[in-house]
Design a protein around this nucleic acid. Sequence first.
DNA 1: TCTAATTCGGATAAAACTATCCTAAATTTG
DNA 2: CAAATTTAGGATAGTTTTATCCGAATTAGA
Lengths: 144, 144
Amino acid sequence: MFSKACQYAIRATVLIAMEGRNGRRMSLVDIAQSTGSPPAFTAKVLQQLARAGILDSTKGPNGGFDLTPAKARKVKLSMVVKAIDGDDVYKGCGMGLPQCNAKKPCPLHDHFQQVRDDLRRMLEGTDMHTLSLGLDAGTTYLKR
Amino acid sequence: MFSKACQYAIRATVLIAMEGRNGRRMSLVDIAQSTGSPPAFTAKVLQQLARAGILDSTKGPNGGFDLTPAKARKVKLSMVVKAIDGDDVYKGCGMGLPQCNAKKPCPLHDHFQQVRDDLRRMLEGTDMHTLSLGLDAGTTYLKR
DNA sequence: TCTAATTCGGATAAAACTATCCTAAATTTG
DNA sequence: CAAATTTAGGATAGTTTTATCCGAATTAGA
């Protein structure tokens, strides 16, 4: 469903949002460690998110990536997914037709509509702050 | 959501099911033509489907791929997807954690559950015969 | 039996994705 | 100001996915 890059992006952003609730910022190595992601590759992903304005990054000692609770509430899953994978997964045609709509639908269109809308609603309605809450509550986990 | 190979597989199978309703079989070149897919690559995909027992193939003149209406009713979308992409897309964890379940869920687990179950129900409940009906009725389309 | 049509399977190539490494730039701290 | 820390970005590999080509095997029909 999502690329590995996108999965790393989601994991990292949720984690950074959690640290953000404590007013802290996280370094790349800590993020990679806590999410079980390859550091160098994760760096690229985080840079993409920072360029997209989803995360804030700071260089130098004590630097890293951060996301304030206020911003975390505004950052929806759909924004992270779109920044890394594009929005095809929750907007595009299931069979890959470039033009597929109610007027000229693919055979899957109607069957798929509900699923895609469901996914879209979920992605657009779920924010990073909410996702981060379970992490330090110990009800959700980020690593195998 | 699905790989290109899988999209080609779905398009082809629906088309073959439609021809099957007229008791006909389809050659690779006709399939590639009618679905707008690269012939050589589509050949590999169709071979996979034939090996998986989803399609029947016949060599020689007037050969090709076929699917009887009776069989098309039994072939669910999930079977095609599983044969090409595996079942991760409708069974696996959205964040890519190898172990993610109700007991040790990822932060997305609960939010994702409904979407995944929805997708799964759709894939397992939709058969190729049904999908093929709109094609010659002119209510659905396979090519851009 | 010969020929043509057609799938099968292996080899190969191109593109995209995943991953790593190294240097530059920025920033904090002493 | 110098040194250490940390992200930014470019270069480069490795792997997977997508794609093509070609010869072998099979089969129908003349």
